[in-house]
């Protein structure tokens, strides 16, 4: 463990490069913070616990994630994350007539009850080669609806559907992997994805993978450029999508 952290520390000294660690098992240090445009606000509460929340989205879709350290092995760091999301206000916002209506405004067709989504995940990160990190993860997602949820509630688009399909599933199994490391000077890569299997749904499988190059152009700022690939079984059939993504992150 100490060796591993030493490698990580020396890596950051040599390359002056902070790897994006949000999808790894590594936690922020106490008092350390990070935020991005498409990225939640993360706070190192203690050296063993990290909180994160999407501050702007939080008004529309209240959410909270806690990540905590687990017993680590010689060559790996392990942690858990537990996330709660309350999507009901956002769903009600887009259940409307006219432009912006993504869910039928007819409440006899689709009524939106209170829904709480929870996600529990175990992550394990180890160093591969020198300065490069590899993470595997596994977990489960549950959605608890306080009322009947019509299957037509879903927005049948990439990114949205795999997250909403679970409202009508018993539970979702999630497994993922992630790689990050330096490439050249203050440029690195951040690559990873998740496979989901919905149990108790007509559409079982979804998959997301994102590849980014990041440029740490200031000690505390990173620009990420890349794309996400989405595949899912939708009610109309299976579909692949590729969506370009840009993000700016600031840490302090």
């Amino acid at each position: 463990m100490r060796t591993f952290l030493l490698i990580l520390f020396s890596c950051s000294l040599i390359f002056s490069l902070d790897l994006p660690l949000d999808r790894t098992a590594i936690l922020l240090d106490k008092g350390q913070k990070e935020i991005g445009i498409c990225h939640p606000y993360r706070l190192g509460k203690t050296n063993d616990v990290e909180y994160s929340i999407h501050p702007i989205l939080g008004f529309l879709i209240p959410n909270f994630k806690v990540k905590g350290k687990l017993l680590s092995a010689k060559n790996s760091i392990n942690s858990y994350s537990l996330q709660f999301t309350y999507p009901t206000p956002l769903l009600k916002l887009v259940q409307k007539e006219g432009i912006g209506g993504l869910i039928t405004p007819n409440t006899a067709e689709v009524s939106i009850p209170h829904i709480i989504v929870s996600r529990l995940q175990i992550l394990s990160t180890r160093s591969i080669k020198e300065n490069h990190l590899f993470t595997i993860s596994a977990g489960m997602e549950f959605a608890i609806g306080f009322g009947e949820i019509d299957s037509r509630i879903t927005i049948d688009l990439p990114y949205f559907f795999p997250r909403m399909n679970m409202y009508n599933s018993d539970f979702t199994l999630v497994t993922g992997m992630h790689f990050t490391g330096p490439l050249w000077k203050n440029i690195g890569y951040d690559s990873g994805g998740e496979f989901k299997y919905n149990v108790g749904s007509e559409q079982n499988i979804s998959f997301e993978w994102g590849d980014y190059l990041f440029w740490q152009f200031k000690p505390k700022m990173k620009l990420l450029l890349g794309y996400n690939i989405y595949y899912a079984e939708y009610p109309f059939g299976n579909q692949w999508d590729l969506i370009p993504t840009v993000d700016l992150r600031y840490s302090w």
Binding site: E97, G98, G100, T104, P105, I155, L157
Partner: peptide
């Protein structure tokens, strides 16, 4: 269309 973002029409 993949989505008509109006009145909940969708795809």
């Amino acid at each position: 269309a993949q989505v008509i973002p109006s009145d909940g029409l969708g795809r």
